[in-house]
């Protein structure tokens, strides 16, 4: 394989991975900080209703 192609592929992986990890942690923190106590019954009902939009 062409070494420049390998470099490009590895660079793409690295950049996408970094973006993913960065925003993943960001979203997780946000979800933790802004957590809303969900009513478990609501999810159960939604599960049954799922698919009907």
């Amino acid at each position: 394989m062409d070494p420049t192609l390998v470099k490009l592929a590895l660079g793409g992986l690295a950049v996408l991975g970094c973006i993913g990890i960065f925003f993943g942690i960001g979203l997780a923190l946000a979800a933790y900080k802004f957590a809303v106590e969900a009513n478990p019954k609501v999810e159960e009902v939604l599960e049954v209703l799922a698919g009907a939009q």
């Binding site: 950049v15 996408l16 973006i19 993913g20 925003f23 960001g26 946000a30 802004f34 809303v36």
Partner: peptide
């Protein structure tokens, strides 16, 4: 990689606005 990154960013912003606005 523009398509993958851009659509990812859109999903992210939607998710972020959703999480923050909810609280």
């Amino acid at each position: 990689l523009e398509i993958v990154v851009f659509i990812g960013l859109v999903s992210l912003s939607v998710q972020a606005v959703d999480t923050i606005l909810r609280k």
